[in-house]
Design a protein around this nucleic acid. Structure first.
Length: 212
DNA sequence: TGAATGATTTACT
DNA sequence: GTAAATCATTCAA
C-alpha cells in the first residue's frame, strides 16, 4: 500500500510479556488485528494478524500437548509466555505459535493468517507467486513460508528477538470452531478460532455447522 | 527398530 | 469436488 516503504521498525510498539502471560483464549482473541513483525535477513516483513486459534493442553484433545505430552517437540509450550512454538506438519509446512499463560501450562496460540503490510514483494518471492494474490499469506503454512519462518525460530523470545508482535488499532473479531482437527471429537466443536470478518485474507470461511 | 500419522497445501478431475 | 505429497514426531515392541 502507499507509504509502506516509510515503515520503520523502530516505530513499531513491541508487545510486552504481560500481553502473552494471560489466558490463552484472551490472547488468541486479542492477537487478531495485531502486527506480526520479522526483521528478516531479506528485510523488514510485517503482516496484520487476521486469524488465530487457541490450543489449551493438556486437556485439549486437539493440542500437541494433549494428555501432558512433554517432549523435545512440545517443550517450548511449557516454557515462558511470549516465546515462539514452531512445528512441522505433514512433513512440509512450518506453523507459528505463540506460547501463552504460565510456565508449566502448555497453552499456545496458532497464527493462521496475516495480511501483508510491509515487504509484500519479498514475501511473494519466498512464495514464488505475485504479491497481489490473496493466497500469499492466507494459511498457517503459507505465512511462515512468506515470512521465512522455520525451525531456526523455534523457542525465540518475542520480547527480545527479531521476531515479535506489535500493537495496532482494534478490529472487529468473529469466532468459529477450529480448522483441521476433526479427529479431536467434541474439542473440535469449541469456538476457539478468532478472525477479522472484514479481511480478504482469511484461510477459510467460517465452518458451517449442521442446523445453523 | 519399525509403523502410523498429522493444528496443510497444491494439483488435478 | 478428491487425492497425493512428504518426513519429523510419536508410540508400540
Amino acid at each position: 500500500m502507499a507509504g509502506s516503504s516509510d515503515f520503520d521498525a523502530g516505530r513499531l510498539r513491541r508487545l510486552s510479556r504481560a500481553f502473552y502471560a494471560r489466558p490463552v483464549l484472551t490472547v488468541a482473541r486479542e492477537c487478531v488485528g495485531k502486527l506480526l513483525v520479522h526483521q528478516s535477513p531479506l528485510g523488514l516483513l510485517v503482516g496484520r494478524i487476521v486469524e488465530a486459534e487457541a490450543y489449551r493442553g493438556p486437556e485439549d484433545r486437539a493440542a500437541h500437548s494433549w494428555g501432558g505430552r512433554q517432549t523435545a517437540r512440545t517443550l517450548a509450550m511449557y516454557g515462558t509466555a511470549g516465546h515462539a512454538y514452531m512445528f512441522l506438519i505433514y512433513g512440509l509446512h512450518w506453523n507459528f505459535n505463540v506460547v501463552t499463560g504460565r510456565v508449566g501450562e502448555p497453552h499456545a496460540v496458532l497464527i493462521r493468517a496475516i495480511e501483508p503490510l510491509v515487504g509484500a514483494a519479498t514475501m511473494a518471492q519466498s512464495r514464488g507467486m505475485p504479491a497481489d494474490r490473496r493466497d500469499l499469506t492466507n494459511g498457517p503454512g503459507k505465512l511462515c513460508q512468506a515470512l521465512g519462518l522455520d525451525r531456526r525460530h523455534y523457542g525465540l523470545d518475542l520480547c527480545r528477538s527479531e521476531l515479535f508482535l506489535a500493537d495496532a488499532a482494534k478490529v472487529p473479531v468473529a469466532r468459529s470452531r477450529r480448522i483441521g482437527i476433526d479427529y479431536a471429537g467434541s474439542w473440535a466443536e469449541k469456538p476457539w478460532r478468532f478472525y477479522d470478518p472484514t479481511s480478504a485474507y482469511i484461510s477459510r470461511l467460517p465452518a458451517r455447522r449442521a442446523g445453523t
